[in-house]
Simulated scan of single mutants.
Amino acid sequence: MATTLSFTQNSSNRWEASCTSSGDRMAVEITRTKSGPLIVYGNITGLGKKMIHDFGPSAEDTVIFEIDVPADIDITIESFTEVTSAKIVGA
């Protein structure tokens, strides 16, 4: 069953949501107000974020992608444009 991801605007005026990996492959679908950069980060709790995927400067306004990392990895998704809806399956 899909879970809603809640994005909030951070101090850099970017939209950000976080979750923790269950160890299963996860599918994420994000709808944004317009195209623009979209970056996925991962980290082990207590360590700094490392880029998992960079969709580039002109990622589409609606994107669906997979994240496949071990269990207990903290995932952060950062959009440079406003996110209007987002869901994740497998988290």
Score class of each variant (00 low, 15 high):
Ile64Ser: 14
Val69Ser: 06
Ile44Ser: 05
Ile75Asp: 01
Pro57Ala: 15
Val40Lys: 02
Lys50Phe: 12
Phe65Lys: 02
Ala71Ile: 04
Thr62Asp: 07
Phe55Val: 04
Lys34Thr: 14
Ile75Val: 11
Val69Tyr: 07
Gly42Asn: 06
Lys49Trp: 08
Ala71Asp: 11
Ile52His: 02
Ala59Lys: 06
Ala59Leu: 05
Glu60Ser: 14
Asp61Cys: 08
Ile52Asp: 01
Ile75Glu: 00
Ser35Gly: 12
Pro70Met: 04
Val40Asn: 08
Pro70Asn: 03
Gly36Met: 13
Leu38His: 09
Gly48Arg: 12
Glu66Phe: 14
Ile77Leu: 04
Glu66Lys: 08
Thr45Gln: 11
Pro37Ile: 11
Gly46Ile: 05
Gly42Gln: 12
Ile77Thr: 04
Lys49Met: 12
Ile73Tyr: 04
Gly46Ser: 07
Leu38Cys: 07
Asp74Cys: 05
Gly42Glu: 07
Val28Cys: 06
Tyr41Arg: 11
Ile30Trp: 00
Phe65Val: 02
Ile73Met: 09
Glu60Val: 00
Gly42Lys: 13
Ile75Asn: 01
Ile73Asp: 00
Lys50Trp: 07
Thr62Phe: 02
Val40Gln: 08
His53Met: 11
Asp72Thr: 13
Leu38Tyr: 07
Thr76Ala: 08
Pro57Gly: 15
Ala71Pro: 03
Met51Gln: 14
Gly42Ile: 09
Asp74Glu: 12
Asp74Ile: 01
Thr31Glu: 11
Leu47Ile: 13
Pro70Gln: 06
Asp74Pro: 03
Gly48Asp: 14
Glu29Lys: 03
Ser58Pro: 01
Arg32Ser: 09
Thr76Lys: 02
Leu38Arg: 05
Pro37Ser: 13
Arg32Leu: 05
Ile75Tyr: 00
Asp72Gly: 02
